[in-house]
């Protein structure tokens, strides 16, 4: 059984005097225990909203959530406020994008880590503090005894994210959601943090949902990838298969717009034309169609349905790459 089954998850925001925004539009995906699953897509495609919905962290008012999020068979969306609160940090962990603003500025790091341990393990403060020390050590924070007493502004960006990872993994959750955990960090630190995540996740057998817009991150660590566009999954495949042969023109476009170190000779980067502002509503056709190099007339008239393409892959496209008009994309 899958650890997490997200079924038809939709989230819309309704504000007084503003049109309803549907940020997530019927997303389904599974996460198997211990696997790393990527959610990839451009800014605004609903990645963060999806993760917040799974965690039950969306504001209650003005938010409409439908579908189901089964965690080991229990629908998280149906849980009471108290029950979901108990699961957060214990069964489900989350790491956010900006490590500086994600830490409480007036509470020492050690106490913030210990608070989580106290909360979920029910151990007294002293024991929690010594566990916190071990944790900081394990996530590679040098001189943990000193760092325990320090405040977030006294740490470097990389160390802050390490501390947040320590908190998220303090109670060995079975699922960790990392929402662009390296976007706010220096390039040199990014690799270290991703390394740390990969190691910890492998050591503890934690399943990981890796949210990113960076295909490099996906290529480095995900077992399976879901490509999101305008609140829907447009393609899903195992990592190797996806990189070997992207089928959705959007996926292909994303890959073509990433600079590659192993590309031989000169290869022009070709960013996807247009922006999300050009999208058409999914009800009218394919949201990506105005920006798509493969668009047919049909694409603007009929909504493409999800197809299971035999090899365990999933695709939502009328005219996939590599069928009628193949575009050559090199595999890794």
């Amino acid at each position: 059984m899958a650890l997490l089954e997200v079924r038809d998850l939709s989230v819309s925001f309704a504000r007084k005097g503003e049109p309803t925004v549907t940020a997530v539009d019927g997303i389904s995906f599974d996460v198997q225990p211990g696997r790393t699953v990527g959610l990839v897509g451009e800014s605004g495609c609903g990645k963060s909203v999806t993760s917040l919905a799974i965690m039950g962290l969306l504001p209650r008012r003005g938010t409409e959530v439908s579908g189901s999020v089964l965690f080991e068979g229990t629908d998280l969306l149906g849980l009471s406020q108290r029950d979901i609160e108990q699961r957060r940090g214990r069964d489900l962990g989350m790491v956010f994008q900006d490590p500086l603003s994600s830490l409480n500025p007036v509470v020492p790091i050690g106490l913030q880590v210990a608070e989580v341990i106290e909360r979920h393990r029910g151990v007294p403060r002293r024991a929690a503090m010594s566990q916190a020390r071990e944790l900081l050590d394990r996530v590679g924070i040098p001189d943990p005894d000193r760092r325990l007493k320090e405040y977030s502004h006294q740490l470097s960006g990389g160390m802050r994210q390490r501390a947040l990872i320590a908190m998220a993994l303090a109670c060995r959750p079975r699922l960790l959601i990392a929402d662009e955990p390296t976007t706010a960090l220096d390039v040199t630190i990014q690799a270290q943090i991703l390394d740390l995540l990969t190691t910890l996740v492998a050591d503890t057998g934690t399943a990981l949902i890796m949210i990113t817009h960076d295909l490099g991150v996906v290529a480095g660590m995900c077992d399976e990838v879901n490509v999101l566009y305008a609140g829907r999954v447009v393609e899903r495949a195992e990592r190797h298969e996806l990189f070997a042969a992207p089928r959705h023109p959007y996926t292909a476009g994303l890959m073509a717009s990433v600079p590659r170190l192993d590309s031989s000779g000169e290869q022009r980067l070709s960013p996807i034309s247009g922006s999300v502002a050009d999208n058409i509503p999914w009800e009218q056709g394919c949201a990506f169609c105005p920006r798509c190099s493969n668009a047919l007339q049909l694409c603007g008239q009929a909504t493409p349905e999800v197809e299971h393409t035999g090899d365990g892959r999933l695709l939502r496209c009328h005219n996939p790459v590599g069928e009628a008009t193949p575009i050559s994309v090199e595999g890794p």
């Binding site: 965690m55 962290l57 509470v107």
Partner: peptide
């Protein structure tokens, strides 16, 4: 953000408010 992060760790509402 840090209040959201605290919630994501399951910190109790009372503690979220007062700490």
């Amino acid at each position: 953000d840090h209040v959201l992060a605290a919630r994501a760790l399951g910190v109790k509402e009372r503690s979220v408010v007062f700490r």
